[in-house]
Nucleic acid binder design. Structure first.
Lengths: 146, 146
DNA sequence: TTTAATTAAGACAAATTTATCTTAATTTAA
DNA sequence: TTAAATTAAGATAAATTTGTCTTAATTAAA
């Protein structure tokens, strides 16, 4: 469903959010350890999230990645997915037709639309805040137990 | 959402079904032309569909691919997707965790479940027959206009 | 039985995604 | 101002997916 890059991006954003609640910046190393992802690849994804304004980076000593506390509740999964995978999840045809719309639909256009609308709704209504709070409370987890 | 292989597999199956209604077998060449896909790659996917019993192949002169008429209404999209992409669409964790269940869910487990269940339901309740009939009636299309 | 037509299979190649490594640029603090 | 700590960027490599090509195996019909 999502690319690996997107999976890492979501998990990294959650971990950054958790730490930003406490005013702490985190490094790619910490992030990669906490979400069980390849560090250098994760760093690339963080760069993309910074470019898209989802997270902030501070260079130099005592630097790291962070998210403005007041933004955490406003950031939706859709923004993270969009920053990394683009909008193909919204606009792409289920069967890969270049143009697929009501006028000239692919065979699964209507059926696919229901599923995609559900996905879209989920992404647009799920905030980083609620995901981060669930991790903090122990209701969900960022990686498999070692 | 689906792999290219899966997209081609679905479109190919629909085209084969349409022709099987009329008792005609079709070749990989015809199929690839009709669904606008790379021929040799499509042939590989057809082999997988044959191995999984979704379609039949007949070698030699006057051979080609076909589907038993009586099966067309019974074949569901889920069988095609499963033959090509496996069951990861059903069992995989939205964030790639190796184990993700009610006991130890990933951050999007519940939210993702709703979307995946919708997709699963769609795939399991959409028959090759209805997709093929919609193409025949001109209500949907297998490729973009040239 | 032979030939022509066809799918099957496997080796290969290209493109994309995932992952790593090295160096540059920036920033804070001493 | 210098040094240390950090992210940014770009080159490279590995893995996977997508796509191609050649040859083998099979089959129907003449």
């Amino acid at each position: 469903m999502f690319s690996k890059a997107c999976e890492y991006g979501i998990k990294a954003s959650i971990f950054i959010a958790i730490n930003s609640f406490e005013g702490k910046r985190v490094s790619p190393k910490e992030i990669a350890e906490e979400i069980d992802s390849p560090q250098a690849f994760t760093a690339k994804i963080l760069q993309a999230l910074v470019r898209h304004g989802v997270i902030n980076s501070v260079k130099g000593a005592y630097g790291g990645f962070e998210i403005d506390k007041k933004d955490i509740a406003l950031i939706k999964l859709s923004q993270i997915v969009n920053a990394i995978d683009g909008d193909k999840i919204y606009n792409g045809c289920g069967l890969g037709l270049h143009t697929c719309d009501e006028n000239r639909p692919c065979p699964v256009h209507d059926k696919f639309k229901v599923v995609r609308d559900e996905l879209k709704h989920m992404l647009e209504h799920t905030s980083l805040e609620e995901l981060a709070l669930n991790i903090k409370s122990g209701a969900s987890f960022l990686k498999t137990i070692t």
